[in-house]
């Protein structure tokens, strides 16, 4: 390829990439810049942004009770991701290796089907099931277990359940794609060499499906970290998570500067997490290609 041609390809590539670059610029970089600028400002008594250029918002975040809120969010997102990894991995193993092929697509459809209705609606369905006079409470009473059902709705358990339920398809789909692609002969070889089924999963399947695991974990962890709908509806608005904290600054107490600072912090944490993931994600082991 001569230089002239290469230049021509370069130009064409630039032209083709322009829409994406403009898109990223207008809808990602500009909003991020605005967020960063606002995070350095203050708020006047009437709730308007006051241009002060200081770091007070960040100081406020690390000195107030907000770190507790951050810890709560990271905890929730981690527990949600880990529970989903376990549940989905078992389900996908069964789906890929044990389920009858004719049923597979039907079951996969069933995984995606709930996404066709509003997630709000599905959360309200859970509220109907979990509330003190709900379906579980009725069954509990009918089974003669008395009145002492512990509270289900508006508890950390309910928030966890809602999150796991809500993000299930986002974990199953990348995991299933990865597991389904694994060459069955590796597994046969492991069995032939006398590996225990658990060892086969741990030493053969998991390294081979590493990409799917990381994709699923990222697709769940990041939105879970900023989710505010599930914690609000299933948690009863008693405990704030990062998503609620940010939402409240903008939609309730009109402290855009502090809200921007909290958003900036959240974005920074997520970016660092992804960077670490990418650094760690170096292929290991003999059979990884």
């Amino acid at each position: 390829m001569d230089a002239r041609n290469e230049n021509k390809y370069g130009e064409r590539a630039l032209i083709l990439a322009t829409p994406a670059i403009v898109w990223l610029g207008v809808f990602v970089l500009v909003p991020l810049a605005i967020l960063l600028v606002f995070s350095l400002q203050g708020r006047d008594d009437l709730g308007r942004v006051q241009y002060l250029w200081h770091f007070d918002n960040f100081e406020r975040f690390v000195s107030g009770p907000y770190l507790k809120c951050l810890a709560r969010s990271v905890g929730l997102a981690s527990i949600t991701t880990i529970s989903l990894l376990v549940i989905s991995y078992i389900f996908c193993l069964w789906l890929a290796f044990a389920a009858r092929p004719a049923r597979r697509s039907l079951l996969l459809l069933a995984v995606v089907l709930p996404l066709w209705t509003s997630s709000l609606l599905r959360i309200y369905a859970w509220i109907t099931i979990l509330r003190p006079t709900g379906i579980i409470a009725h069954l509990w009473g009918a089974a003669g277990m008395g009145q002492d059902l512990p509270p289900l709705l508006y508890t950390p358990f309910a928030v966890w359940l809602g999150m796991v339920y809500n993000y299930l398809p986002f974990m199953i789909l990348p995991l299933y794609t990865a597991i389904d692609k694994v060459d069955r002969r590796y597994i046969e070889a492991a069995f032939d060499l006398g590996a225990h089924p658990l060892a086969t999963v741990k030493d053969v399947l998991m390294p081979l499906t590493r990409g799917g695991i990381i994709a699923g974990a990222i697709m769940v962890f990041i939105p879970a970290l900023g989710d505010y709908v599930v914690p609000d509806l299933m948690g009863g608005g008693k405990s704030m998570y990062m998503g609620n904290l940010i939402q409240n600054q903008f939609l309730l107490v009109r402290d855009w500067a502090f809200g921007s600072a909290v958003s900036t912090i959240l974005i920074a944490i997520v970016s660092v997490a992804i960077y670490v993931y990418m650094r760690v994600d170096k292929p290991k082991g003999v059979i990884a290609d």
Binding site: R43, G47, G64, Y66, G237, S239, L245, N248, V253, D255
Partner: peptide, 13 residues
């Protein structure tokens, strides 16, 4: 108002 707002946020956090 801003005092109430801040206390309310702290209460929820």
């Amino acid at each position: 108002v801003s005092v109430y707002d801040r206390l309310w946020t702290e209460l929820k956090c």
